[in-house]
Structures are given as C-alpha cells and as structure tokens.
C-alpha cells in the first residue's frame, strides 16, 4: 500500500532521521522524501513509502506521535486516512428550532459534523436529521456521552449506527 505522509519537524539536526526511523522499523519502504524549510524554525516534510498493511501504518503513526511529531496529512492509496471513523446518527425531534447551530458546535468540540441531511415534514412536526460525524476512535465514548446529554436536554430520540 502506498502512503503519503506530511509531517512538521523542528529544524534541529537529526530530526529528519528520527522521523524516518519508525517508518523503516515497521517495514515501510521509503520511496521519496521532500522537505522544505518554513518560517518559525519548522521543516515540512513529505514522505512517500510503501507498507504491507494498514496495521503497520497505525504502528508508525503511534511511534511518530510518541516523538511529538505533528502529522498534518496522511494519504493511503491517494485517499485521506484517519484512524478516525465516520459515525452516522439520526436525531428525531425539534432538532432545527432548538438551535441546531448550537448542537453542531457542541458536537464539533469532540468530532466533526461532516455531513447533514434533514427532513422536516412541517414546522410544528418533529424533524429527522441525519448527521455524519468524523471522530477519533478514542473519542467515541465521549461523543456518545455528549449526544446523550444533548438528547436529554433537547428531548431528541437518537438512532446510532451499530458501531457507534
């Protein structure tokens, strides 16, 4: 699998080498490295490499994070890669006129509402709103708690996806 990774490194000797090490340790076969100095003592590095599977990528990512290296973008086979999930929810209730903007803002504190679809039969009736929320795997519980709170406060029924 082909991976393109953008990293932000501090402009100090040896930082590039330290960043490349986890890639080769976990079986990554480096194809190219591009780097450019930026303002503020930072270097932006774009590494392309090949790996056997997604779990090696997760190991590499974990290692880089441990070193406090900022990953600004990862493309796997040319597509944006998250150890994130997109979870779908349907909210049923007076979702629009109980400050939907506020609801979305609250959710965006934990994840990111990346898609929204609404059916509103008539203003006085309950509407049904489907949301896709991009969420870091480790924050799923937090998101669920938040959605429960919102539903309790605004009297919504929530329909979660199976993995949500």
């Amino acid at each position: 699998m082909k991976v393109d990774m953008k990293l932000q490194l501090r402009d100090v000797p040896g930082s590039l080498l330290r960043a490349l090490e986890p890639v080769s340790v976990h079986g990554g076969n480096i194809v190219s490295v591009l780097h450019s100095r930026e303002d503020g003592g930072r270097v932006s590095v774009q590494i392309s490499f090949k790996i056997k599977d997604q779990s090696s990528l997760d190991l590499i990512k974990r290692e880089l994070r441990k070193q406090n290296i900022r990953l600004s973008e990862i493309l796997l086979e040319g597509k944006r890669y998250y150890s994130k999930k997109t979870l779908s929810f349907i909210l049923i209730g007076h979702v629009i006129d109980t400050d939907i903007r506020g609801t979305i803002d609250k959710i965006n504190d934990v994840g990111l509402v990346s898609d929204i679809d609404v059916i509103m039969p008539s203003p006085e009736k309950r509407s049904s709103v489907m949301m896709n929320i991009d969420i870091d795997n480790r924050k799923i519980k937090k998101l669920n708690r938040l959605i429960n709170e919102i539903c309790k406060e605004k009297k919504f029924l929530v329909i979660r996806s199976l993995e949500g």
Binding site: S88, I90, I92, D117, I119, M120, P121, R126, S127, S128, V129, M130, L157, I159, S161, L162
Partner: peptide, 25 residues
C-alpha cells in the same frame, strides 16, 4: 430500553437514502 414507537417515517426515509435501515437491536 428504548423502543421503536417514536421513530418517524422521515427517519426511515433518511436512513434509506443513505443506504441504511433502522432496526431494533
């Protein structure tokens, strides 16, 4: 326990539009 009595036809329609179904699980 949350049952299905408050599920609206619109919610079912939305699910369908996004290639999903709603089931009591």
């Amino acid at each position: 326990i949350t049952g299905i009595k408050d599920i609206t036809p619109e919610a079912i329609e939305l699910a369908k539009k996004h290639n999903c179904v709603i089931k009591l699980i």
